[in-house]
C-alpha cells in the first residue's frame, strides 16, 4: 500500500535531491563537458555579495511580513473567540477566502491597486493629501509594497491555527482570572501567550521560512526590480537557472542547496519540537 508513494517520492523528490548534490560538484557549461570541481561552488556562493544581498532582501521581507501577520492574526483570533457561533463562522470564512487566491492573481490585483492612474491605494492616499507614490518603481518602498499582498494571502491560515490553539485553552483559566479582576490585556499576557507558546513558535518559524522563500509575488509584480530591491533568494536562483552564461547553472544549484540545508534543518527541528510537546501532554 505504500509502494506507489515510495516510488513516486523516489523518482520526483529524493533522486532529484541527490542529483542536485552531484551536479553541484561539477562546473557545467554549454561549451564543454562538465568538470568535477568538488565543493568549489559552495565557496563561490558564500563569497558572492549578490547572494548575501538577496538573502538580506528575503530577510527584510520576512521581518515585514511575519510580525504583522502574527499580531493581526492574534487580535482577530482573540475577537473570533468571543463571538457567537454564526458571526464567528462568517468571519472565519471571510478571512480564509484570500488564502485561496493565487500569487499570480494577487500580484496582478495589487499592481493594479498600486497604479498612479486609477489605482485604489494612491486614490485613497490622495483623499488624505498624500502621494501619489510609484510604489513598485521606487527602490525604497517596493519591498514593503510586496509585503502587503504577502500578509493578505497568509493571514487567514495563521488566524485559524492560532484560534484552534486558543480554543484548546480551558475556559476555567479565564473565568478564574476574570474573578480576580484581570482584563483582556492581562489575560492575554498571563494566560493566552504563555499557553500558546508552541503554536506561536511554530507559526513564527514556518512564517519566516515561507517568507524567505517568497518568489512569485516579486517575479510577477516587479521582476526583482527596481535595481534588485526585490530580488529574493529564490527569484535570484530562478533567474540564474535560465542564465546561459557558464557557471550560472552550477552557481544557482549550489545556492539552492545551501538554502535547503539551512531551512530544511530549521523546519525539521521545529517539527520535532512541536511533535514532542504533543507527545508529552498526550
Amino acid at each position: 500500500m505504500i509502494t506507489p508513494m515510495v516510488i513516486l517520492l523516489a523518482i520526483f523528490v529524493i533522486y532529484p535531491l541527490f542529483y542536485s548534490f552531484f551536479l553541484s560538484t561539477f562546473e557545467i557549461s554549454f561549451y564543454k563537458d562538465p568538470v568535477f570541481v568538488g565543493l568549489q561552488f559552495y565557496g563561490y556562493v558564500l563569497d558572492s555579495p549578490k547572494f548575501w544581498n538577496t538573502l538580506w532582501v528575503g530577510l527584510r521581507l520576512a521581518l515585514m511580513v511575519v510580525p504583522v501577520t502574527l499580531v493581526v492574526a492574534f487580535l482577530i483570533a482573540s475577537l473570533i473567540k468571543t463571538l457567537g457561533k454564526r458571526l464567528a463562522g462568517f468571519l472565519k470564512t471571510t478571512i480564509y477566502i484570500p488564502t485561496v487566491i493565487s500569487f499570480v492573481v494577487a500580484s496582478v490585483v495589487f499592481v493594479f491597486m498600486y497604479r498612479s492612474q486609477g489605482g485604489l491605494v494612491n486614490g485613497l492616499l490622495d483623499v488624505v493629501g498624500a502621494g501619489p507614490f510609484a510604489f513598485l518603481s521606487d527602490p525604497s518602498i517596493a519591498l514593503p509594497a510586496i509585503a502587503v499582498p504577502a500578509i493578505w494571502l497568509g493571514l487567514g491560515v495563521t488566524t485559524l491555527i492560532m484560534l484552534a490553539g486558543m480554543l484548546d485553552i480551558p475556559e476555567t483559566y479565564y473565568e478564574a482570572a476574570a474573578l480576580e479582576g484581570a482584563g483582556f490585556v492581562q489575560q492575554t499576557f498571563y494566560i493566552t501567550i504563555p499557553l500558546l507558546k508552541n503554536v506561536l513558535l511554530f507559526l513564527l518559524v514556518t512564517g519566516f521560512i515561507v517568507a524567505l522563500q517568497s518568489f512569485e509575488l516579486p517575479l510577477v509584480m516587479t521582476a526583482g526590480g527596481p535595481v534588485e530591491a526585490t530580488t529574493t533568494p529564490n527569484l535570484y536562483i530562478f533567474n540564474q537557472f535560465k542564465d546561459p552564461t557558464p557557471y550560472a547553472t552550477s552557481f544557482s544549484l549550489t545556492a539552492a542547496l545551501l538554502l535547503f540545508f539551512v531551512l530544511g534543518t530549521i523546519s525539521a527541528l521545529i517539527f520535532r519540537l512541536v511533535r514532542s510537546d504533543k507527545a508529552v501532554d498526550g
Binding site: V6, L9, Y15, S20, L23
Partner: peptide
Amino acid sequence: YLWAFCIVPLFIPGFAILLTSFVV
C-alpha cells in the same frame, strides 16, 4: 526507514530540486 523516507520530503523546499526535477 520507509517512514523517514516518506517524511523527509516535507523539509525539502521545491526550489532545491527544481532544476533536477526538470532534468528528470
